[in-house]
């Protein structure tokens, strides 16, 4: 994962006394890590381990009655249409968000990374939704997606789409709102990558008679690889864990059309009163996110190296 910061240090190198002595062995004491480790252990590790235990019980979430049920929560997931459907939705939503957000983010970055006069302003405009709470963005978009033909998107374009009410549209509507909020995030990371592309390379390619597309394909794109890695990773993890936006906009409906793993595990715990089962789903989600991130890093890193 060092890819993310591998060059960062070079930008902060004031004049010091390098190489006065090769003295690498001066490791700081354990005590430096102890406070962080303690807080991390208390707030994250211990509760997660204690929580995992619930995944093997039938605890309702309240009261003292609970018994161990072995692996039956996990086998129940395999027969649970709602959980399986939400897994499908989560995957579709993630793929849609990852692809569209990064393509849009890249196009915006390429557009802003030019000599146009408004580039500084545009950067701010496209990035600004990132800093706002997803719940508030969802409330705003609930209005934008209003089925009323005189309001929102329908009013603007004279459409009659039931954006959040039609089960075959709702999931994509949610993806649209997520992309709107985070395309600027991808843009900024791509921009940082583009700034690292040396101008001379472009000029050399131009002299060789390369067109815009060719220059992008052979000069810009390979050097963007690290930015692509980090963008794909962030948007994938974000997509898989997506909760706030769905909770505030549709709460999983209509029917089960926008139910994601996060909303299902929320409902199992707080609406259906099946805390043990909910924890089992959370555990599956955790393993899933970890596996996907691992595969992504492994694959994308090897791509970076080979180029």
């Amino acid at each position: 994962m060092s890819v993310i910061t591998k060059q960062a240090g070079t930008s902060a190198a004031p004049a010091a006394k390098p190489g006065r002595r090769r003295f690498g062995a001066m490791t700081p004491p354990w005590l430096f890590a102890a406070p962080a480790l303690l807080v991390y252990a208390v707030v994250v590790l211990y509760p997660s381990i204690a929580g995992v235990v619930y995944a093997f019980t039938d605890w309702s979430g309240i009261g003292g009655d609970m018994s161990f049920v072995g692996l039956s929560n996990f086998s129940a997931i395999l027969h649970d249409d709602q959980a399986l459907g939400s897994l499908g939705n989560t995957l579709l939503l993630t793929v849609a968000v990852v692809v569209v957000q990064n393509v849009v983010g890249l196009l915006l970055a390429l557009g802003v990374n030019t000599k146009i006069k408004s580039r500084a302003l545009l950067r701010v405009v496209f990035f600004s939704p990132v800093v706002v709470s997803p719940v508030m963005v969802a409330f705003l978009w609930k209005y934008i997606y209003n089925p009323d033909p005189s309001a929102g998107l329908n009013g603007l374009f004279g459409l009659h789409v039931d954006w959040l009410g039609d089960p075959s549209v709702a999931l994509w509507s949610i993806a649209g709102m997520v992309v709107w909020q985070y395309a600027g995030y991808s843009m900024v990371i791509f921009l940082a990558g583009l700034e690292g592309v040396p101008r001379e390379l472009h000029e050399a390619a131009m002299i060789d008679g390369a067109g815009t597309l060719q220059r992008f394909r052979y000069v810009t794109w390979p050097l963007l690889a690290p930015a692509v890695t980090i963008n794909l990773m962030l948007s994938t993890i974000g997509g898989l864990k997506l909760f706030d936006q769905v909770f505030a906009a549709t709460n999983g409906g209509p029917g089960y059309a926008t139910e994601t793993l996060s909303t299902v595990l929320y409902k199992q715990a707080f609406v259906y009163g099946k805390f043990g089962y909910s924890t089992a789903i959370a555990l599956v989600l955790a393993l899933f996110v970890a596996a996907v991130s691992f595969v992504q890093i492994y694959y994308l890193r090897s791509r970076e190296v080979s180029q």
Partner: peptide, 16 residues
């Protein structure tokens, strides 16, 4: 420490 990035916080919700 990195493990903490992928753990969904719902796991430890009640114990915490």
């Amino acid at each position: 420490f990195l493990l903490g990035i992928v753990l969904p916080f719902q796991l430890g919700m009640i114990p915490l």
